[in-house]
Amino acid sequence: MKPTTLKRSNAPIFWALFGAGGMLSALLGPMLVFITGIAVPLGVVLPPDTMSYPHMLAFAKNFIGKGFIFAIIALFLWHAAHRIFHSLHDIGIHAGTGAKLLCYGTAMVGTLIAAYALLAIGF
């Protein structure tokens, strides 16, 4: 606790990603569950071919669509990683470097895969 030994925490990086993902999932999560899990499979509200392959491919090739998919996947993952990491802490598992690498590593790998896949699809 001596002021001379204070080390700046790098938590703001993870906290910002967590916050962004939390905001996004709160605003868009229920709507995405409704569209992908209820409306399209049951054929209600939306036309049945809303999520057909050609539609989705076109969406993923579009610049804005790419950005949307990337933000949803990456930020949701960072949000989940941070929440899971701190929940370990909350239930008394003294999460060390291993748990940190596993949680944030998963988010990082997911982010990179999403970025790669979205770029591989082309424009």
């Binding site: 002021p3 204070l6 925490s9």
Partner: peptide, 8 residues
């Protein structure tokens, strides 16, 4: 500095 630190 304290707020920003790992103890913060």
């Amino acid at each position: 500095e304290l707020i920003n630190s790992e103890e913060g």
